[in-house]
């Protein structure tokens, strides 16, 4: 990698990279296949959370019992990723490194405050997911570095969670998506995280809305206000499938629905 600086690409599942190669949008001099590195294929539970190797595919995330126990939002959300054959090949490392602003795993990493583990010539380092995504298809990863694993911290006991996305077709990239996680205390929101995808240059949290929700019950008035504020705070782009206005509208819809689900789950024993 170091000797082919700027001319090399890593490939794992290839589900994002290969279309770009087939369209001849990229023409790397060197492709390094990391899909067989056994260390990258592990899902490991620790006291702090769950560490997922970069080579773990979406399908394995969907079926992981470790995640189902501690972070079921990840299992659940994987069903929205493309289709079965893509989920069998596409990896978490590939998805995060690709950094598509409308992809599910970058959103989950940001929502769940994941640590992204990176190794390179200068040694190992860890980036916070929130700092990792810089722009569409652009991350903090430099050309001679490899994303090796992601650690998702445990959710607080009794957390409610929700994920919603809207796409033109089953499995298509989201026009807008939202993930929410919250805990309740005495019937009001004690802690909450809300993250959006597809409606900005990168997936991102909406801290002002999170702050507004603290100490409140998710009632119709709060909901309407949150939905309105989401629409004010996102910054979507127009493309062939949806205008910025419509995406802004959808951002409010998916945020509201994700929080509906999180609130309902938060009440479950």
């Amino acid at each position: 990698m170091a000797s082919h600086r700027g001319e090399a690409k890593l490939i794992a599942g290839g589900q994002s990279l290969m279309p770009m190669l087939n369209f001849r949008l990229l023409d790397p001099a060197l492709l390094v296949d990391i899909s067989r590195l056994p260390d990258l294929a592990q899902i490991t539970a620790s006291g702090r959370g769950i560490t997922v190797g970069a080579g773990v595919c979406h399908h394995a995330l969907m079926r992981s019992p470790e995640l189902a126990e501690r972070l079921p939002i990840i299992n659940h959300t994987m069903q929205y990723v493309a289709h079965m054959a893509i989920r069998n090949r596409g990896t978490i490392g590939g998805s995060l490194a690709h950094g598509d602003p409308a992809a599910e795993l970058p959103l989950l990493a940001v929502l769940l405050d994941a640590d992204i583990h990176i190794t390179g010539p200068a040694g190992d380092r860890t980036a916070r997911a929130e700092d990792f995504f810089l722009a569409p298809l652009t991350t903090d990863l430099s050309e001679d570095e490899i994303l090796t694993a992601v650690t998702f911290p445990n959710l607080a006991a009794g957390s409610g969670w929700g994920f919603e996305e809207i796409a033109r077709r089953t499995g298509d990239f989201a026009l807008a998506g939202a993930g929410a996680v919250l805990t309740l205390h005495h019937g009001v929101i004690a802690d909450v995280r809300l993250a959006m995808m597809g409606v900005d240059e990168t997936p991102r949290r909406l801290p002002a809305i999170e702050a507004m929700l603290l100490g409140r019950a998710w009632d119709a008035g709060v909901r309407a206000s949150a939905v309105r504020q989401v629409r004010e705070q996102v910054n979507p782009m127009s493309d062939l499938q949806a205008s910025a206005d419509y995406r802004r509208h959808l951002a409010g819809v998916v945020a509201g629905r994700a929080l509906d689900t999180a609130w309902a789950k938060g009440h479950m024993p």
Partner: peptide, 27 residues
Amino acid sequence: CEHGVCGACTVLLDGNSARACLCLAVQ
């Protein structure tokens, strides 16, 4: 389609469905 959308090239790779158009033969 050669971009992984149509699914016509789907094969089983180690028993699981995979797009053969998004897979290098060396892989």
